[in-house]
Design a protein around this nucleic acid. Sequence first.
RNA 1: GUGGGUGUAGUUCAAUGGUAGAGCACCGGAUUGUGGUUCCGGGCGUUGUGGGUUCGAGUCCCAUCACCCACCCCA
Length: 420
Amino acid sequence: MKYNIPRGTFDILPKDSYKWQFVMDSFRKVASRFGYEEITTPIFEVAELFERSSGESSDVVQKEMYRFSDRKERTFALRPEGTAPVVRSYVENHLDVLSSRTKLFYIGPMFRYDRPQAGRYRQFYQYGIEFIGSDNPYYDAEVIAIEMLWLKELGLKNLRLELNSVGCATCAADYEAALREFFRPNLDKLCPDCAKRFDIKPRRLLDCKVPSCKPFRSGAPAQLDYLDAHCKEHFAKVCDTLTAMDIAYTINPSIVRGLDYYTNTAFEVIYDGLGAQNSLAGGGRYNGLIEQIGGKSIPAIGFAGGFERLLIALEQEGIQLGTRPVPDAYLICLGDKARAGIMPYLNALRQKDVYVDYDPDKSSLKALFKAADTSGARFALIVGDSELEAKQVNLKNLQTGEQVSLPLDGGEAVVQVLKS
RNA sequence: GUGGGUGUAGUUCAAUGGUAGAGCACCGGAUUGUGGUUCCGGGCGUUGUGGGUUCGAGUCCCAUCACCCACCCCA
């Protein structure tokens, strides 16, 4: 019986895995430069955690969550996003007591039952940042700065940072009420999707792509006009701080985050050239979430980004992502005696941190050299019965063809050449 | 969940309804101790799967699965 990988998932094969490691390490380094520390939570949680935090009406909860129950009929879900688990852990482990400011980042797989598409998978890998403990607009900018600085360092150009504010809970409610008033007269003329959105998430009416819906939204109220004084000032300060940090952005009033817990700042990093799924990262402030899932009322902000899309973008720009390891040397062993006698030497080299490739199944010199070439090793170590007898090893530079005879000692002589 | 496209060797692709092929890759060999070039040799693959039409199906029809793209949604 042959088996297939589950739909919407993928294997990271050796020819690519070094790139993933490179990018993940790179993110870890940048995050720690800003004082953020890694947190790892389980890939499944009690389903209710997501239902409560993301919102019962959100698509993520309604149709995209992998739910399952265990043998004791407890209902769990594979995590569809990273923020709720981090906040759960924050509350559960009383991280707020240790410090009033908590800086966390995470890396790991998320799961969403979606129809796969370019840049969209059912199991996908995210990196994320969460700052917990202050409503200061500086932190909104800091969190955004991490992402933008990182992408810039990786060499990514043609990025767009889009910014919006959805206000606090009361501003948002005021605005949604205004939107409903605005659309209500034409409700019966809107597409069926919009009719649903009218009740659940009226903001979505603003970016419906059905042509017949478009005319009805000219003159619609804008969220930014419905911010109260405090929210308005907060947003202005975020903008100012970004400008002071030399981070370019555009304000896009139609940015809506999919999850219910967002307040105030919402942002998205767009890279054109990814197809329809052109969002590299997105996030925002969630001042009410911690209290909502059992903690104190503590403001926070964060974002998450997708590694698959980032890798697509980086490769599209022709950016080199580390290099696949190649052997320092390839050991060519001729004769049964040599093969048996060489083990201590092979072992010694590896203990000295030399990457030596060796294949005991190949015996013809031609095949061995061919293998040495394709391995990418710069050097071949050639040992036959006579060399073993004389305690010598031939070290051949595969590029120049130069060959020298060195003592077959504990590896010191060879290491000296290899590392030079 | 809805729509469109595509499924042939490890891979990239051929094959007017009439015997399934090629390039690349891979393995071996060209006096069993010095490679990358060249030459020679090596492939029966349930043509994704299951039905149907036909004397005959990789080719036409239906179903199913998978992949790609888009809607939706988002990372």
